[in-house]
Simulated assay, not measured.
Amino acid sequence: MSLTARHLEENGIPTVVFGAARDIVEQAGVPRFVFTDFPLGNPCGAPFDREMQRTILGIGLDLLESARYPASTVKTPFAWPNAAWRANYMRVDETALEDLRKAGEERKARQAARKAQFGG
């Protein structure tokens, strides 16, 4: 997404990137970035929280209008509803190992079946 934004900007189309992976997006050098410190996949707010999502979209539109310098980043003022999300994000513990192993085996079986079916 970051590289697409840069390409669009180079061709005269202004962009704002909404994201949750600040280090990655800023490293890519996007012109305008709205950062929300939420788990990946939730850059525009918590699921079903329409008011938060509208506010974050408004922050992005304001940034599009007001940014005066390249690589402008604005951090939204919101906190994820469960404050412990960061400590538990992508955490694997002993109780989940068997479920994860089983899910991996099922995924491998589906991939092998598709490969056999479509020859690739």
Rank of each mutant, 00 (worst) to 15 (best):
G120I: 13
E106M: 09
G119P: 08
T76E: 00
T4C: 08
N42Y: 14
D62L: 05
R101I: 13
E105S: 11
G29E: 10
T55F: 01
S2E: 10
L97M: 12
R101Q: 10
P31R: 12
P70C: 01
C44Y: 12
D37A: 07
A67V: 05
F35S: 08
R22G: 09
L64I: 03
V92W: 01
I56H: 09
Q117D: 08
Q117K: 14
E105V: 02
A20L: 02
R50V: 12
R114S: 11
A20C: 14
I56N: 05
G19Y: 03
K108Y: 15
D37L: 07
V34C: 02
W80L: 08
S66H: 12
A28Q: 13
S72P: 01
R22Q: 14
L8E: 02
C44F: 11
S72D: 01
T15H: 02
T95F: 06
A87E: 14
Q53G: 07
S66T: 15
G60S: 00
V17I: 08
V17W: 00
R110M: 13
K75R: 14
F118Y: 15
L61H: 03
L8H: 06
R86K: 13
T15D: 07
E65P: 06
L40K: 00
F33Y: 15
N88A: 04
R6W: 02
R86W: 07
R68V: 10
E94D: 12
G45R: 00
A87R: 11
N11C: 06
E98T: 12
I13M: 03
G19S: 06
F48V: 00
T4P: 07
A21H: 11
A116V: 04
A84D: 14
P70I: 04
F38T: 00
E65A: 06
P77N: 13
D49T: 05
M52D: 04
F78P: 11
F118Q: 06
L40G: 08
E98N: 07
L63C: 07
F33Q: 09
A46M: 00
I56S: 07
R91M: 05
C44M: 13
F33D: 03
V25G: 01
P70D: 08
M90Y: 01
P31H: 03
T4L: 15
P81Q: 02
P70L: 05
S2K: 12
A67K: 10
H7Y: 15
F78E: 11
V30W: 04
R50F: 07
G29D: 12
L64K: 02
A79M: 09
V25T: 15
A79G: 11
